[in-house]
C-alpha cells in the first residue's frame, strides 16, 4: 500500500472532476492548461510547480441541495495545495536534499515521493516504508544533523483517496539552525506508519496524541494509548468526519446554531 504512487492518486482525483474541468493549473502564469499539453511545461521556469488538487468544493455558504437560486450554488472551487518543486530549490535546501538522496541511495521516488518548497519552508514527502531510514540519516549524519524533533501531528484530507491521513514531522537542526518538515501519508483503511520513537524518544507523546486524534497507528511505538481523550473514548476527534458537537444558543428570542452548523465560507 505504501508503494502507491502519488501520480495515480492525482489521476484518480481528476477522474472525479467533471470532464471539462480536468486541468492542471500553472502557479506562475495563473492560466489553465489542458493536461495533454505536457510539452508546454518544459518551457516553464524551474521554480514553477504544479498545484495539487486535494478537494473540490461546490456552492457557497455551506448550503447543499436546497434549491439555491442565488447562483452561488453553481460555484466550483478546487482546493489546491502547493505541489512538487523541481531542483534546484535554492540555498541549503539543495544540500539537504542531495545529501539525503545520497544517503538513502535513491534517485527515483522510492524514498522521497516529492519535495515541496513553499513559503520558505522545505517539505519532504517520504514513503512510509522508508521513514525510519530517512529519520535515522537526518538525525545522525553530520551534514544533516536534525537532532531535535519539534513536533509530530496529523492532518486529515478525507477527499485525497488512498492518502487520507498525513503525519507531519517538524525537525530542527540546532547545529545548522535549519528546520524541515517531513510528511508521510497513509490510507484510511490501512492507517499504519512506523514509529520514530526509537530515533526521537520525544515522539512518544506526539505519536500518542496523533493516534488519539486521528487514529493513525504507529507501528513499533512502546505503548500506543490515548493521551488526551479518556481511555474509553470512541472515535478520533480531529478527523474531519468527527463532529464538533455543541448546541444552539438562544438569545433574546433568536437562535444561533452551534459553530458547526453556522454558515461556512470555506
Amino acid at each position: 500500500m505504501a508503494e502507491k504512487d502519488g501520480d495515480e492518486n492525482k489521476v484518480a482525483k481528476q477522474d472525479q472532476l467533471p470532464a471539462d474541468k480536468t486541468q492542471t493549473v500553472d502557479s506562475t502564469s495563473g492560466t489553465t492548461q489542458d493536461a495533454s499539453h505536457e510539452v508546454q511545461q518544459e518551457l516553464v521556469p524551474s521554480d514553477a510547480r504544479e498545484l495539487e488538487v486535494v478537494d473540490v468544493r461546490e456552492g457557497a455558504f455551506g448550503v447543499r441541495g436546497t434549491g439555491d437560486t442565488s447562483g452561488y450554488g453553481g460555484l466550483t472551487r478546487p482546493v489546491m495545495m502547493p505541489g512538487a518543486a523541481q531542483p534546484p530549490f535554492g540555498g541549503w535546501f539543495d544540500e539537504v536534499h542531495d545529501r539525503l538522496q545520497t544517503l538513502t541511495d535513491s534517485h527515483d521516488d522510492r524514498v522521497i515521493e516529492k519535495v515541496v518548497v513553499d513559503r520558505g519552508e522545505l517539505t519532504f514527502f517520504i514513503r512510509r516504508h522508508a521513514l525510519l531510514e530517512v529519520v535515522t540519516h537526518l538525525r545522525n549524519d553530520d551534514a544533516l544533523r536534525f537532532e531535535f524533533c519539534s513536533s509530530i501531528s496529523g492532518v486529515h484530507f478525507p477527499h485525497e483517496s488512498g492518502r487520507e491521513l498525513h503525519v507531519v514531522y517538524h525537525l530542527l537542526s540546532m547545529t545548522h539552525r535549519r528546520r524541515i518538515r517531513l510528511e508521510v501519508t497513509c490510507p484510511d483503511d490501512d492507517p499504519h506508519v512506523p514509529s520514530v520513537v526509537s530515533i526521537y524518544p520525544t515522539a512518544d507523546w506526539h505519536e500518542r496524541e496523533t493516534w488519539d486524534f486521528f487514529g493513525i497507528q504507529f507501528d513499533g511505538h512502546p505503548a500506543l494509548t490515548r493521551i488526551l481523550m479518556p481511555d474509553d473514548w470512541q472515535g478520533h476527534p480531529q478527523r474531519k468526519d468527527y463532529p464538533l458537537g455543541g448546541i444552539p444558543v438562544e438569545y433574546k428570542g433568536g437562535t444561533i446554531p452551534s459553530p458547526e452548523h453556522r454558515r461556512s465560507y470555506s
Binding site: S151, S153, S266
Partner: peptide, 17 residues
C-alpha cells in the same frame, strides 16, 4: 504552530507544539 489552510476563511488544521 503548524497551520494548514485549504484556501478558506477558516484554518483547515492548527496544531500547537
Amino acid at each position: 504552530c503548524h497551520a494548514v489552510s485549504d484556501g478558506g476563511t477558516r484554518p483547515y488544521r492548527v496544531h500547537f507544539r
